[in-house]
Nucleic acid binder design. Structure first.
Lengths: 189, 189
DNA sequence: ATGAACATGTAAATGGTTACATGATTCG
DNA sequence: CGAATCATGTAACCATTTACATGTTCAT
């Protein structure tokens, strides 16, 4: 039941179209939640029916028309009540962890391939988040921005995303190192 | 489609009952995957029907009887083929991230409560993982264990779990600090 | 002209959570 | 005697993914 709140949170700072919200939740840029376009459009429809967001048609000349959504007072109240209840912690749920769990029974080369792929993905995503952070800070230093910047919520969640991918990257690197070292050790005996 | 592989991976090193597998995937100890008992029992039934695991009845005296499962040759082949395909990376999906994303529009005290709760949870879970790691290492140092230990797969995934919760803990601590500092700054003006 | 980006969905299938059920034994 | 642990499920519901669908404009 958190996608609805994620959509509301995404619309807090600016009016966005469904399409723009899908961009925010897309694979490459999901800084605080991830969802597919179909989910976003469905959720926006539900939220509008319940009066938590309000949409207005915007006619465009050189593009398909679109609908821009903003959060209503009721929507903000819904978010407040969501935040007042305890958040349930989530768990790591990665295919790669399952594959590494079975490492001692699987082919090392195959696993190293998987880890190397994930390493590259994590590195790229961390760099993307880092760029977004720089854009949000602008000229200011981080400490200055965090203390006096207008909106720090998105900055804090983006930082978590960056650090998560950095940790994934480092873990992949270390795991590859371990697997290689063990192969060497086996070859020497 | 990864729960089935997580169950297979859990059964690789030893025969376990459904109940023991549910323990491994329970909230407090999910080192590489998380699932509820209902899911585990259902998955084991499916895996057995497909011949990927084999169960045997164990009669017990002072306890309910149980069924112990082991991975069959077909099950191992299934895992091999799972590992040979690219793993799809997962995303952070935490209620708390949604709440912090909206931080600039919500009550600071409420958010600090949420972050403090999550901090404590993360700290406890990181400590639990750390203990598991120590138990796996035994007398050996980490480098020695990683190079010559019998099974490093579970160790590596557990380390990822520990580092994930440490990162959650640190992020919560930093976010609280930022929110408090901004409140002070507002009060001073 | 081909593909990417804009813009918005429907329908079916899979995966995960919540609620409910049962019954024995051990520990405090 | 009440709570925790052992042991195993069913059923209903909600959330997410996959597959399919449509039409426009802009850049190469």
């Amino acid at each position: 039941m958190a996608l609805r709140h994620a959509v509301l949170a995404a619309l807090l700072d600016e009016e966005l179209s469904g399409y723009q919200v899908t961009k925010a939740f897309a694979a490459g840029v999901a800084n605080f939640w991830h969802a597919l376009p179909q989910q976003v459009y469905a959720e926006l429809a539900r939220l509008e029916k319940e009066g938590l967001v309000a949409g207005r048609e915007v006619v465009q000349v050189a593009r398909p028309n679109k609908r821009l959504f903003r959060v209503t007072g009721e929507g903000l109240a819904e978010l407040e009540s969501f935040a007042s209840a305890a958040a349930k912690p989530s768990f790591l749920r990665e295919d790669l962890l399952v594959q590494v769990q079975a490492a001692d029974h699987l082919d090392t080369d195959v696993l190293i391939d998987r880890l190397t792929e994930r390493y590259a993905f994590a590195e790229a995503k961390a760099a993307l988040f880092e760029e977004q952070l720089r854009a949000m800070r602008g000229e200011r230093g981080e400490a200055e921005f965090l203390l006096h910047g207008a909106r720090v919520g998105p900055y804090l969640t983006c930082r978590r995303g960056r650090d998560f991918e950095r940790a994934n990257r480092d873990w992949c690197r270390d795991a590859v190192e371990v697997l290689r070292a063990r192969r060497e050790a086996r070859a020497d005996s």
